[in-house]
Each structure stands twice: as structure tokens, then as C-alpha cells.
């Protein structure tokens, strides 16, 4: 497991309370860590950007833990958005669950996965071990970088900024999106290039002109985006049955509390949403 940069300093209680997603995390994790802050709010936590409207968590594949999270959301009047249920069966298949509620003038959106893309089972297990006593539990920089290698072009500058926090030369060579930084690091640690090139082929182009490496970074980004597009496309295709049932589903759960919505969604997904999705 590569070395993580230092964890951020513990935040003060008022810092947690003023961000409703951090406050919500405390409720999710009362008595036991059940949900790790991920993606956009983790970027906020790491002080990279304030611009994230939604909350995202990695949750344990435990029926009781998910029931606790649903109960917390139900207390706040949350309702499901279209998607998989917050249920072990589908989450374990890589699906995501999406809910939202109003907190006065604020719309809070809560998104959940248990198998985040691009994190191996070993990395995920290490993440749970590492955060089991944290308040709030937040995904670290290296895992966050992996999550942000999405189909969205706008995530790559964030990856670049996250990688700026890295100090370990091998980690920089693995993750930096800066040709300048890669060339500078390679100049001092040329012995790392050959072993790491099997993980990151563009390192094999070094030494080279900066423009050459910039072109290789662009190519790498497009490949990463295409890979994530294929993953999303596989899930969207597998969702066709549920999409066709959407009108009836939403009519059935309209105005109902979350517990009833959950039961209705699970019953529908048992018929319409495959648990396992094959991604090329």
C-alpha cells in the first residue's frame, strides 16, 4: 500500500456542524463507523475546493448499518431519487443509491456506494481499517485520486491539485497530472521510472520534451475517461428494466415515507434490476 500524505488536522466541532454533510456523517456514524465521506465533500474536507453541492459516502455492506443510515435519513424526510436501493444486494454489485431532502432552504443530496470504482478490495478494506476511529471518517488523498479518475473532464484538474499534496516521489510519479512535476521528480528519481512504467505507461516516455509528456497526459486522461464511460454505460444498460418501470415506481411511492419507499423500490428492483453487472 503506498504511503498516504499526512491526514488533515482534526476539525473543530463548529466546523463539522456548519457543513450539513459533515454533521450528517456524525449521525450516520453514531456508535460505529458506517459511512466514509467520499468524493466531493472529501475534496472539501481536504481543502481543495468548496464547490460541491452533494454528499457522497462509502458505506459498509451490512444490513443493520444501512438500516441505521436509512433511519437517519427518514428522520430528515429524505426520499429516494431514481436509482438502486440502499440495500446490500445491489450496493455489493457496484450500484449506487441516491436520496435527497430539504433542510430549510437547502437541498441536501446523499449518494451511497459500497464498492467505489477503482478501489481494489484490499484498498477498500485498508480504508475501513484506517478510518474506523475517525470523526468524521474521510477518504484519504490517494484513494480520492483513484475515485476522481472519472469520465468527467472537470475531475482531472482536481486530481492534479490532490496530487500536489503528495510528497513521496513514487506517489508523485504514479498520480501527478503535471508534466512539470513529473519531469522534475523523474530527474531526481530516475530509478523509479522503469518499475512504475508498468503501472503508468506514460512514464516510459521520460526523458522527453515537456510537450511530449503533456500529450501523453492528455492521451492518458482520455483513456481513463473512456474506461469510466464504459463502466457507466454498462450500468445504464443494465438499468433499462428499472427505467421502464420508473413511472409506476414513482407513482407507487409518491408521498410515502422513506421506509415504504425503500420496500417498494426493493420489490421493484428484485424484478427489474440485476444485482451483477459485467463491465468490459
Amino acid at each position: 500500500m503506498p504511503a498516504e500524505p499526512p491526514a488533515p488536522q482534526p476539525a473543530q466541532p463548529d466546523h463539522l456542524a456548519s457543513n450539513p454533510y459533515f454533521a450528517l456523517s456524525r449521525s450516520f456514524n453514531a456508535g460505529r463507523v458506517r459511512a466514509i465521506i467520499s468524493s466531493g465533500q472529501a475534496v472539501v474536507w481536504h481543502r481543495m475546493s468548496e464547490a460541491s453541492k452533494d454528499g457522497d459516502w462509502i458505506v459498509r455492506e451490512d444490513a443493520d448499518d444501512l438500516a441505521h443510515i436509512r433511519a437517519v435519513l427518514a428522520e430528515r424526510g429524505a426520499v429516494y431519487r431514481f436509482g438502486a436501493p440502499l440495500d446490500v444486494r445491489w450496493l455489493a454489485g457496484g450500484w449506487s443509491a441516491h436520496l435527497e431532502f430539504q433542510d430549510g432552504p437547502l437541498r441536501l443530496r446523499t449518494d451511497f456506494v459500497s464498492r467505489p470504482p477503482r478501489l481494489s478490495p484490499a484498498r477498500l478494506a485498508a480504508l475501513w481499517r484506517k478510518t474506523e476511529h475517525d470523526d468524521p471518517p474521510v477518504i484519504g488523498i490517494l484513494d480520492l485520486i483513484a475515485l476522481k479518475l472519472t469520465q468527467r473532464e472537470r475531475d482531472y484538474p482536481i486530481v492534479g491539485t490532490l496530487a500536489k499534496r503528495l510528497s513521496d516521489p513514487a506517489a508523485i510519479l504514479r498520480h501527478s497530472r503535471s508534466a512539470t512535476m513529473l519531469l522534475r521528480t523523474a530527474a531526481g528519481h530516475g530509478d523509479l521510472l522503469a518499475p512504475l512504467a508498468s503501472e503508468r505507461p506514460l512514464l516510459a516516455t521520460i526523458p522527453c520534451a515537456q510537450e511530449t509528456l503533456e500529450a501523453a497526459l492528455d492521451h492518458e486522461r482520455r483513456e481513463l475517461m473512456r474506461r469510466d464511460q464504459r463502466r457507466i454505460a454498462a450500468y445504464v444498460a443494465a438499468m433499462a428494466g428499472l427505467a421502464r418501470a420508473r413511472g409506476a415506481l414513482e407513482a407507487a411511492w409518491a408521498g410515502k415515507p422513506l421506509a415504504d419507499q425503500h420496500r417498494i423500490l426493493v420489490e421493484c428492483c428484485a424484478q427489474q434490476l440485476p444485482v451483477v453487472v459485467h463491465v468490459d
Binding site: Q12, D14, H15, M48, S49, I158, G160, E214
Partner: peptide
């Protein structure tokens, strides 16, 4: 510093106090 997330706000986020950052967000 190429390939950075370079919103005007991002440049100073790491240097804010918790209270400043929270208020800003």
C-alpha cells in the same frame, strides 16, 4: 504549476482557519 485546479478561491483554501473555511463553504 500546470494542470492545477485554479479557481481563484482554491488558491487560499488551504490557509483558511476552520471557521473561515466553514463560513466560506
Amino acid at each position: 504549476e500546470d494542470d492545477e485546479f485554479t479557481s481563484a478561491e482554491a488558491n487560499d483554501l488551504a490557509n483558511c482557519s476552520d471557521a473561515e473555511f466553514s463560513a466560506w463553504w
